[in-house]
């Protein structure tokens, strides 16, 4: 029997042979993600992984942000959904930038391999920034490194300020948290200070940016953050 370094032959008992594996199922993905990041760095392409719950306003926020940045840098978008291409079509018609739709085939998240397949269909030589709109979900996408340079998430006011307490991993992996739908604050018991405090509990370094994608309020701050990130990455 041939053995390799990952598998150590351990015991032979009761006619059952035990092969020790001791391998995290995230291990391959983490390695693929690191490789992808290094490749993107050498090509000068910044990949942002944008996550949120369904209905938080990811696509609308993206359209507003892209329209502020598209004259300064070259942008492409990858939309990941379980099915349909409504988001890719919407982004393309509202911004005119290249937008491709990825289908996860029922999976609730994207991994590094799926991200790479998406990037293979993106004109990387003509792009400075690729925004990956992950599947709307606050659990699984947090566990899988996509190979992105930074993780961002959008939390909308109707979801409540206590969300960082309920989804600790998501908030601990995000470098920036955009709080959307600030215009409906008067109708909800949303405490912005409490929300910021909870986010900092999960990730003291997280940047918090309140916006309203519908009116455009605060979008400049997010666009500036992103532009700074892209310029720094391309140095």
């Amino acid at each position: 029997m041939r053995l390799n370094k990952n598998t150590i032959f351990v015991t032979l008992m009761d006619e059952v042979k035990v092969i020790e594996i001791k391998k995290s199922i995230f291990e391959n993905n983490d390695r693929d993600a690191d490789l992808l990041r290094a490749e993107l760095k050498s090509r000068g392409v910044y990949l942002l992984n944008l996550m949120s719950a369904p209905g938080s306003g990811k696509t609308t926020t993206l359209i507003q942000t892209i329209n502020r940045l598209k004259d300064k840098i070259r942008i492409a978008v990858m939309e990941a959904d379980i099915d349909s291409d409504v988001d890719a079509v919407k982004i393309k018609s509202a911004t005119g930038i290249p937008s491709i739709q990825l289908h996860t085939g029922g999976m609730c998240h994207l991994d590094a391999e799926m991200t790479r397949q998406g990037l293979d269909n993106t004109p990387l030589d003509d792009v400075d920034l690729v925004i990956l709109e992950n599947v709307g979900n606050l659990v699984c996408p947090a566990e899988f490194d996509t190979g992105a340079v930074r993780n961002a998430m959008i939390l909308s006011v109707p979801e409540g300020h206590d969300k960082p307490l309920k989804y600790p991993l998501m908030f601990s992996v995000c470098d920036v948290v955009v709080i959307n739908k600030m215009d409906v604050m008067p109708y909800f018991d949303f405490d912005l200070d409490k929300c910021k405090e909870y986010i900092k509990m999960r990730n003291p370094k997280a940047t918090v940016i309140p916006v309203c994608a519908k009116t455009g309020e605060g979008i400049d701050a997010f666009a500036d953050w992103l532009l700074g990130q892209v310029r720094e990455w391309k140095k």
């Binding site: 351990v10 059952v16 042979k17 035990v18 092969i19 001791k22 391998k23 995290s24 991993l169």
Partner: peptide, 13 residues
């Protein structure tokens, strides 16, 4: 506490 790890596989001989 965050482990999702394949510890071992068993094979009937």
């Amino acid at each position: 506490g965050r482990e999702v790890e394949i510890k071992q596989i068993e094979v009937k001989t």
